[in-house]
Design a protein around this nucleic acid. Structure first.
Length: 814
DNA sequence: AGCACGCCGACT
DNA sequence: GTCGGCGTGCTC
């Protein structure tokens, strides 16, 4: 079909359109030449009127019956060509609704800043249909005023009736919606916080005759961060005068927050680290930075080396008048790198997490887009930031699971960054300590270049091998592999700590040293079982046992957080003899305290408050008051503060026994990282690995400190099994409160996908399942899954019905 | 999301 | 018979 004003292909902002579906609208005569790609427009959609983003403008439409665009909401190009393409690609690649992908690249929270007003559609005197009273009042209001806003309508129709009522008026064609964009402006704000006092009792006494000031002070003292003044006054229910009085007494402090809180202060100039100035890695990267090639470099090295090379690259690019984007795996790293960089490079550096409010995040979005910001540092969502002239994209710790988004679209920042670099023809640097299997494979397949400042890391470093068949200490070696199946001489409760780990701990503590013990579960006991009848205490909502947490005296579900009191007797046979199986951080910490009564042990897990954990780690780092840290994966967030003489992996292989072919990579990467953080570089600490699988390639590679050993073994296995990166996999899950229904839907879906595949010619697709998910019941819902292998999986995935969750390139299968 | 429609079982 | 819950298809 063709038309005079042309046609626009749009993504409708209705939030409910599944699949990568766009819609075509006709550009009416009055908007001819005014509708351009990237704009925000108003369109009719079913019975609704909604905002939409123009993706393309053309002379013809593939659809016969098109309706006209009503209006242009925002004249500016909200999405530039590269980001339109990136959004479409993301939706397609991850089989996600295109709107979700588009929203990632748009100003944050845009939909919240669209204001609607309503005007009479026609001068039709009387509607044919009967109107509810609230609808009549609304229509009357709109007729009188000519146009009415949502708030005005709410006033006459009431809060609940307003929305539905005005929607029905629109659906019947009596009223038209107009949408305008009101992006919030930020002019900075005043923040208030309580002054620090040693003894709160003194304040109580001083303010004894000023109850309102006291209330305000108590409220402020309970807050971790400064509050905006209006919010603080509202929360304490006091006026300006009370705050002024409190400030005058020196008990509160008011500071101004700038309008650009995202900018990182870099006043204190420090030099770029000299070490990398003439390194091979920097030489390599330098040669491609000047070109327009979308080359990919896998930069292998320690944090200090990587950061230094990032800084040199960023400096180079910024001098060239272009922007740099750095994607960090977590907010902590993002903040640390931003501070570090701003002191070393002459550039306007912004850190995404510093923009907290909607207004601030929108201001940052604009600044990135206008180019007032040279460098943007953030976590995975930053990969969609609207850089106007990108010169380099850096993904730090590319192997980290933090780069994978956990809701739709379940994108991986490394993968998105790679596409972004291609689209904007700039260089991509993937930095890593322990590359992901995928990135290592890309090097093998010549899709990226490996540069490393430690070439030796690429070849096996022979280590004295310990005898895994016995539990006698091996001489010399700094890596001990303890086979827990044979380690009969365990000490402490539950056989948690082997003789070897015990000896190592004893030696370290005797020498006033420090140790870190890694346990991948929190709590005291994993499973509680009745000795009389065998009853297992499980979560009522999930198919998993409740974990005892002795500290908090609670039984906890680690999946859904269900909690109940620890039992005294079995609910079935009333037997009182209960057996506790398995262990977590609490049990290990307890065992260490028991074995070494003079040691000072602290736990690092999510059972403890962030503040307490920070304090414990900082005490450990200073060597004051804490000698042993026992923690979960949460340890890894503390970086080099964990430096110690000993790292004990209490159980290396819990993850490896799950039916999850991605588990070895995860376990390997996590343990390698911990190892690097704790035992560090050259001076090296000791590593004791307790395992039930001493011959697994993960444990072997850890013992040999040889990552290539791991990749060779892992890649060989994955190739033999037809797994990623040789063949992509996608996971689709369906959950329902009724198990049989979920199973039936999964069966039906499989048949439907097979029918589609059969109709198409030679699709590379293999469907496994349906099978109950590894965790069959979650929060009262039964989960069934399909695994789809092959490159064409994403062609059929959008056909899945409502209620399915799709994860393309999952990083775990549980 | 929101609406229409068709399929059920549960009720008048 | 008819009411209503639930699943499903559709929106250029």
């Amino acid at each position: 079909m063709t038309g005079a004003g042309g046609f626009a292909e749009v993504v409708v902002g209705a939030g409910d359109v599944r699949g990568a579906q766009t819609f075509h609208y006709e550009i009416p005569a009055q908007l001819e030449g005014l509708v351009r790609p990237g704009q925000l427009v108003l369109v009719p959609f079913g019975t609704r009127q909604s905002h939409a983003v123009v993706m393309r403008v053309s002379d013809a439409s593939p659809v016969e019956a098109t309706r006209p665009i009503f209006d242009v909401i925002w004249d500016a190009e909200v999405l530039d060509a590269a980001h339109r393409e990136l959004a479409e690609w993301t939706a397609h690649r991850y089989a996600a609704p295109i709107l979700d992908a588009v929203n990632l690249a748009m100003p944050p929270g845009l939909a919240r800043h669209l204001r609607s007003t309503y005007a009479v559609a026609s001068d039709d005197p009387q509607p044919q249909v009967e109107l509810a009273p609230a609808e009549s009042r609304t229509l009357e209001l709109i007729r009188q005023r000519g146009e009415a806003s949502e708030t005005e309508i709410r006033r006459v129709a009431g809060k609940t009736a307003a929305r539905a009522g005005v929607r029905r008026l629109v659906a019947r064609g009596l009223v038209n919606r107009r949408i305008s964009l009101h992006l919030p402006q930020t002019a900075g704000e005043r923040l208030v916080s309580a002054a620090a006092v040693d003894d709160p009792g003194v304040v109580d006494a001083r303010l004894a005759r000023a109850p309102k000031q006291l209330a305000l002070w108590r409220m402020l003292a309970a807050e971790e961060e400064p509050l905006p003044v209006p919010r603080a006054l509202r929360l304490a229910d006091v006026g300006q005068a009370i705050l002024r009085a409190l400030v005058a007494r020196g008990l509160a402090r008011v500071e101004r927050r700038p309008a650009t809180p995202y900018l990182v202060d870099g006043l204190r100039r420090e030099k770029l680290p000299a070490g990398t100035a003439d390194s091979a890695a920097w030489q390599e990267i330098q040669t491609v930075l000047g070109t327009d090639n979308a080359d990919v470099t896998l930069l292998h090295g320690d944090e200090a080396d990587r950061w230094s090379i990032y800084a040199r690259s960023i400096d180079h690019v910024v001098r060239d008048g272009r922007q740099a984007l750095v994607v960090a795996p977590d907010v902590r790293t993002s903040a640390r790198f931003a501070d570090w960089l701003a002191r070393r490079v002459e550039a306007k550096v912004a850190e995404a997490a510093r923009a907290r409010t909607d207004a601030e995040r929108i201001a940052l979005w604009m600044a990135v887009r206008n180019g007032t910001v040279d460098v943007l540092i953030g976590t995975r969502a930053a990969a969609f930031a609207p850089l106007a002239r990108p010169g380099i994209v850096i993904v730090d710790r590319e192997e980290d699971a933090g780069h994978k988004n956990r809701n739709t679209p379940r994108y991986h920042a490394r993968v998105v960054a790679r596409r972004l670099a291609e689209l904007s023809r700039c260089h991509l640097v993937l930095g890593s300590e322990t590359p992901s299997v995928e990135s290592f494979y890309d090097v093998e397949a010549n899709r990226s270049r490996l540069v490393s400042d430690r070439p030796t890391a690429l070849s096996p470093r022979p280590r004295p091998c310990t005898d895994s068949e016995s539990d006698t200490p091996a001489p010399g070696g700094d890596v001990d592999l303890v086979d827990m199946r044979r380690a009969v001489t365990t000490v402490g409760r539950h056989g948690v700590i082997s003789r070897r780990l015990f000896e190592a701990l004893r030696q370290v503590l005797r020498d006033q040293g420090r140790a870190v013990l890694f346990v991948n579960r929190r709590g005291t006991a994993t499973l509680t079982v009745c000795r009389e009848c065998g009853y297992v205490f499980g979560c009522p909502r999930c198919s998993i046992g409740l974990v005892q947490h002795r500290d908090a005296a609670v039984m906890l579900c680690h999946v859904c957080n269900w909690r109940e009191d620890p039992p005294r007797a079995c609910p079935v046979c009333e037997g009182r003899r209960l057996r506790l199986w398995g262990y977590g951080t609490e049990a290990v910490a307890e065992a260490v305290s028991h074995l070494f009564p003079r040691s000072r042990v602290a736990r690092v897990d999510s059972d403890r408050r962030a503040r307490d954990v920070e304090a414990a780690v900082s005490a450990f780092e200073r060597g004051e008051g804490v000698d042993v840290l026992v923690g979960t994966q949460r340890l890894a967030g503390f970086g080099e503060a964990l430096r110690a003489q000993l790292l004990g992996i209490v159980q290396a292989d819990v993850g490896l026994r799950f039916p999850d072919f991605l588990a070895p990579e995860r376990v390997f990467i996590n343990l390698m990282r911990l190892r690097r953080l704790v035992t560090g570089g050259e001076d090296g600490g000791r590593l004791v690995i307790q395992t039930l699988m001493p011959h697994h390639h993960v444990t072997q590679a850890l013992q040999l400190d040889d990552w290539e050993h791991f990749y060779r073994a892992e890649l060989a296995e994955r190739q033999a099994e037809g797994l990623p990166p040789f063949r992509p996999v996608a996971r689709a899950t369906f959950a329902h409160a009724d198990d049989e229904r979920a199973a039936a839907e999964a069966q039906r879906a499989r048949r439907e996908l097979e029918t589609i595949a059969a109709a198409a010619e030679s699709l590379d697709l293999e469907i496994l399942g349906p099978a109950p998910a590894a965790l069959h019941r979650r929060r009262g819902q039964y989960v069934w899954q399909l695994l789809l292998f092959g490159v064409d999986a994403r062609k059929v995935l959008p056909e899945l019905h409502r209620g399915w969750t799709i994860d393309v390139d999952p990083i775990e299968l549980t």
